[in-house]
Amino acid sequence: MLNSNVSIEETGASAEAVAYTGDAGDIASVNGTGPVTVIETTRHQWVAEITRIRDHQDQSAFAALFRHFAPRVKAFLMKSGASESLAEEVTQEVMATLWHKAHMFDPARASVATWIFTIARNRKIDALRKQRRPEPEDLPWGPEAEPDQEDILALQQDTEQLARALQELPEKQRDLVERAYFGDLSHSEIAAATGLPLGTIKSRIRLALERMRHTMK
């Protein structure tokens, strides 16, 4: 069951033939178009896996996401101050929430990693700080407003660019950003971690929101 072998046809990224063996690190780009394509293909793969969970309750797709993300969510929670056993428990809850909310994932607004981050953050506030977190009013997809493949592709690419831009930050600033998200910085200290190159991804999401508003009318 754990060794899934999934095709990527439904992701819209079918130009690259990819053999997928379960671990993100094992992806082999058959036509050898370089590491960037492999990483981007991995992102589409994750989107496809969420879709398979949503449409087919596919446990092998879930297992693949679990293997990649659960150890990272657990590390994130421990760096945020959770004990090992609490982090394990909360990570299982986060991954279960991913399954139950698969129908609410919007790949035109977030990558899978981003979406899992938001679930983990919300559970963290609940479990570690014992507070509620008010969320903005959701913008549900209207009738036939499911995001189009181009929007999804573009957002996943912008996310990849953002991740690379963060890696290329001077170490001191990158460290500040990470500490901000682990909850290590006070509100006034966070100011020093802002000023990130977010213009491209923001404009993309803004466009997707406008399109969504348009179809909701």
């Binding site: 993300f69 657990k74 977030a110 990558s111 953002l162 998200y181 999401i205 803004r206 929101l209």
Partner: peptide, 21 residues
Amino acid sequence: RARMHSFDAVGGAVLEETSEV
């Protein structure tokens, strides 16, 4: 809202870069 999603994307990138436990 779009800016919030962008900052969430930063959180996603931090999560991806986190060492695994």
